[in-house]
């Protein structure tokens, strides 16, 4: 396959970037999208040019590192798929492909397609955990959890923190991420004692990081490689009101 690529190139956080055209040749349709970029980069290196910087780690759709907007869709055209799991057979020979980084004030570009997502870590540090006593591990099944609750917690826990929700949101909001982390803990008994305080702290950390505000467009849900449901946001909205009107801090 032969493809025409338009890729965002930016040397560093404070230098302006631009779209640069490349020709990708000798691409096998069974390659993943990232493997296609690897081939392009080998070619650039052999020509003495700087390779395109992009993030990846597991390349099996579970770590959340890979992150790029392909033809105007975070993670590309497939529903419920990370870029590393996107294959070139999804494109046709001769296609033109636009590749851009996640764009959000809270995700500053480090280089090319690599962005700094540590603002997600700040949200997690504000409450994405449960407080528990140390000591020996508790007995298995000491705390019963209903099947439906466990399923709902698991559906939210599938979030890999890639940031596609922010990239897709016309407002640059991080509500799907934050709400998924809350919903994960709040469907379980272990999450209940700190529930309202956790909601308040994580939402406040999200706001402080410079993310936008949800206008219920649900582009996040459409882009999420783990197909996390908008309902998690409704739960967060409800809990935030309860927290604000009943908590003393």
């Amino acid at each position: 396959m032969k493809l025409k690529l338009h890729v965002w190139r930016q040397k560093g956080p404070y230098t302006p970037g631009e779209m640069v055209q490349y020709l990708a040749e000798g691409i096998n349709e069974h390659m993943s999208f990232l493997e296609m970029l690897d081939v392009v980069n080998e070619d650039l290196i052999s020509k003495g040019e700087e390779p395109i910087a992009f993030d990846s780690d597991c390349r099996e759709g579970i770590c959340g590192m890979c992150s790029m907007v392909i033809n105007g869709r975070p993670h590309g055209p497939d529903q419920g798929t990370t870029v590393c799991q996107l294959h070139m057979r999804r494109f046709r020979d001769g296609d033109t492909i636009y590749i851009e980084p996640w764009r959000a004030r809270a995700f500053p570009i480090i280089r090319d397609l690599v962005v700094d997502r540590s603002s997600f870590d700040k949200i997690m540090q504000a409450g994405g955990y449960v407080t528990a006593n140390c000591g020996s591990a508790p007995d298995a099944n000491a705390i019963p959890v209903a099947k439906e609750r466990a399923d709902a917690a698991f559906a939210a826990a599938a979030c890999i923190g890639c940031g596609a929700c922010v990239a897709a949101c016309p407002n640059g909001a991080a509500m799907l991420f934050t709400a998924a982390k809350l919903s994960h803990l709040h469907h379980l008994p272990q999450g209940q004692p700190e529930r309202l305080r956790r909601t308040q702290h994580m939402v406040n950390a999200m706001d402080a990081a410079g993310f936008g505000n949800c206008t219920n467009l649900y582009e996040c849900e459409a882009a999420c490689p783990k197909e996390i449901d908008r309902d998690v946001i409704a739960m967060m909205n409800r809990d935030y009101a309860k927290a604000s009107f009943s908590h003393r801090d």
Binding site: Y98, F211, L217
Partner: peptide
């Protein structure tokens, strides 16, 4: 206030962006 904050949350626009789930009237509230 929210609209201004939302604009600021994405200082650099995408060169190509395709909304798929939201309708036009929802984006121009």
């Amino acid at each position: 206030r929210l609209s201004v904050l939302n604009k600021a949350a994405r200082p650099e626009k995408y060169r190509m962006f395709k909304p798929i789930r939201s309708s036009f009237h929802a984006r121009v509230m």
